[in-house]
Computed example of a mutant assay.
Amino acid sequence: MSYYTFFKRALFKPLVQVLMRPRLEGTERVPLSGGALVAGNHVSGWDTLVIPAMLPRQMTFPAKAELFVSRGPVSRVVAWFVTVVGILPMDRSGGRASASSMDVVLDALRAGKVVGIFPEGTRSPDGRLYRGRTGVARLALATGVPVIPVGVQHTHPPSWRRSVVRFGEPLDFSAYAGAGNDRDVLRHVTDEVMAAIQALSGQPYVEVYASGVKAALREGREVEAVEVERPGLGRTAPPLPHRP
């Protein structure tokens, strides 16, 4: 039995089941083998436990590289834990280091692993769904793996309401595989992923980045965050890349 399986059975899943009493929908939609991206909304820090605890396959997340550095007793335990359960280190300093970190995620997907990602890039500041970052599109197009949307609700424990975890139909963007770094394609794919998440989570959608709203709130500035019906509203799908 792997460390991941042990911790999931002995700690993660029992803890989630006791605190959140989650109701699951659509687990049969998760492919039983092969690489996949699980893309979800992010309303609570507990989402990083709830989703993998309820997923019928082993799943890993990218995490900041600082967690893997041992500086004291506590950090040594954290570094050991994230290593043995297969969390992927991500360098967020930018440049070549960040690019190399992305290669770690690409290698995991190509090796047939399931990787979780929150396209919003940060937790929602107010419970609404915010504009997705295009990293999810870049990973999907570079590897050809399906994107499995997931929508969670009521993941702030303890809550009198049962948490809900809904998995959607896998999304296939292989038709755009030859698009490279085309910005219109990356935005279209990202919006389609966010639309699928919204359909599962039932959240109002805001066409701005959550990080910008959080920064404005910290600085005491007002920010316009107008809700729209769905991600990508009014934008047409880009043409498929030419194939000889």
Results as ranks from 00 to 15, higher is better:
residue 39 A to H: 12
residue 12 F to E: 13
residue 26 G to T: 02
residue 89 P to Y: 07
residue 171 L to K: 05
residue 97 A to H: 08
residue 102 M to E: 09
residue 204 P to Q: 01
residue 169 E to K: 15
residue 176 Y to W: 14
residue 74 V to G: 09
residue 32 L to G: 14
residue 133 R to H: 03
residue 240 L to G: 06
residue 21 R to N: 04
residue 140 A to C: 13
residue 107 D to E: 03
residue 102 M to I: 15
residue 174 S to T: 15
residue 157 P to C: 10
residue 113 K to F: 08
residue 136 V to E: 00
residue 169 E to R: 15
residue 153 Q to K: 14
residue 200 L to C: 03
residue 30 V to T: 02
residue 152 V to G: 06
residue 165 V to Y: 07
residue 141 L to V: 00
residue 201 S to F: 09
residue 97 A to L: 00
residue 52 P to G: 01
residue 161 R to M: 06
residue 119 P to F: 07
residue 130 Y to I: 00
residue 77 V to R: 03
residue 171 L to D: 04
residue 53 A to F: 07
residue 138 R to A: 07
residue 204 P to A: 04
residue 223 V to N: 10
residue 40 G to Q: 14
residue 47 D to P: 13
residue 242 H to I: 06
residue 85 V to G: 00
residue 97 A to F: 02
residue 215 A to M: 06
residue 13 K to H: 06
residue 130 Y to L: 10
residue 79 A to P: 05
residue 125 P to N: 03
residue 184 D to V: 10
residue 142 A to I: 14
residue 151 G to Y: 14
residue 229 E to Q: 15
residue 154 H to N: 10
residue 56 P to T: 09
residue 14 P to Y: 07
residue 166 R to S: 04
residue 10 A to K: 11
residue 235 R to W: 10
residue 152 V to M: 02
residue 77 V to P: 04
residue 221 R to F: 10
residue 1 M to G: 13
residue 208 V to P: 02
residue 221 R to H: 11
residue 168 G to A: 06
residue 14 P to C: 05
residue 238 P to N: 12
residue 119 P to W: 08
residue 53 A to S: 09
residue 187 R to E: 12
residue 100 S to C: 03
residue 159 S to E: 09
residue 92 R to T: 05
residue 180 G to S: 00
residue 221 R to K: 15
residue 192 E to C: 01
residue 106 L to G: 05
residue 52 P to F: 06
residue 68 F to D: 10
residue 214 K to C: 08
residue 149 P to K: 13
residue 104 V to G: 05
residue 137 A to I: 02
residue 181 N to R: 00
residue 118 F to R: 04
residue 92 R to Y: 01
residue 15 L to N: 09
residue 70 S to M: 01
residue 39 A to Y: 07
residue 219 E to F: 03
residue 217 L to F: 13
residue 99 A to D: 07
residue 110 R to M: 02
residue 21 R to E: 00
residue 235 R to F: 14
residue 56 P to W: 00
residue 199 A to I: 10
residue 19 L to D: 02
residue 222 E to I: 09
residue 191 D to L: 11
residue 68 F to R: 08
residue 212 G to P: 15
residue 216 A to R: 08
residue 82 V to L: 11
residue 41 N to Y: 05
residue 84 V to Y: 04
residue 231 P to Y: 14
residue 243 R to S: 09
residue 72 G to W: 13
residue 241 P to S: 13
residue 165 V to L: 12
residue 179 A to I: 11
residue 237 A to V: 03
residue 117 I to P: 15
residue 7 F to H: 06
residue 149 P to A: 04
residue 26 G to A: 00
residue 125 P to H: 02
residue 52 P to E: 08
residue 105 V to W: 02
residue 191 D to C: 13
residue 38 V to Y: 08
residue 127 G to M: 12
residue 141 L to H: 05
residue 147 V to D: 11
residue 4 Y to T: 07
residue 142 A to E: 10
residue 180 G to W: 03
residue 219 E to D: 05
